[in-house]
Design a protein around this nucleic acid. Structure first.
Lengths: 108, 108
DNA sequence: TTCATATGTAAGAAAATTATTACACGTGTA
DNA sequence: TACACGTGTAATAATTTTCTTACATATGAA
């Protein structure tokens, strides 16, 4: 059998990170056009840079994108983001499995 | 090729519906123990009935659960919920595909 | 020096989601 | 009738998320 096991918290954080139209578009853009740095991506998607920064942070916290700070030829610091490789199989059974490890307000 | 196509809005509404710990537990409970009616499910999960009602509504709006009103032997109206059969393949490519049909604030 | 580019982040406003409480209604039984 | 059980929902509060604006910093070029 495949080990598709994932913790409830992990699943939840990925779902929460994906549950936003801007963030879906961000992933789509990085997937289709490849890695990009923050300011440029903000221009392409049409949202403000601080707002994009916030969304990228959520995606990165969930492990869906990664970033790498680089120096451009002309000396600017560019923070490049790219999509992580991920594949979530979302089914009732997978959710039931993951939910076993979801903490409750009743937990010790 | 498989037609895994899904609209951006549809994907988004499912992701949003899943991105909550209570709702994951609801799906897990219905999947593991089978269909159940609202009051009983509320007791099992340990949340109030109105709160469960709200979460069930979101899940139903997203098409992840369905409900059927039935009369118990002793005449009570019981609203039974069960999990829908769904399987979402969440990958960067699938998101890029779905995001094509995501409306923007810039749309006509 | 000044301008244009890049970076990050803090503070507060706005909006959406989540949660509680209280109400209203229906049926069968004591 | 009163109680216990089921249903739904409205109003409000609390919390979280989203968004904007403004500030601070750094580098290269004009």
């Amino acid at each position: 059998m495949k080990d598709d096991t994932i913790s409830g918290e992990q699943l939840l954080s990925m779902l929460a990170a994906l549950a936003n139209p801007h963030r879906l578009r961000i992933i789509a853009a990085l997937q289709s056009q490849g890695r990009n740095y923050v300011s440029q991506l903000a221009r392409e998607i049409g949202i403000s840079r601080p707002l994009l920064h916030l969304h990228l942070q959520k995606l990165e916290d969930a492990g869906l994108v990664t970033s790498q700070l680089e120096l451009s030829p002309d000396g600017k610091a560019l923070n490049y983001f790219e999509v992580s490789r991920f594949a979530l199989e979302i089914t009732p059974a997978a959710i039931a499995e993951a939910a076993k490890s979801l903490s409750t307000h009743l937990d010790p």
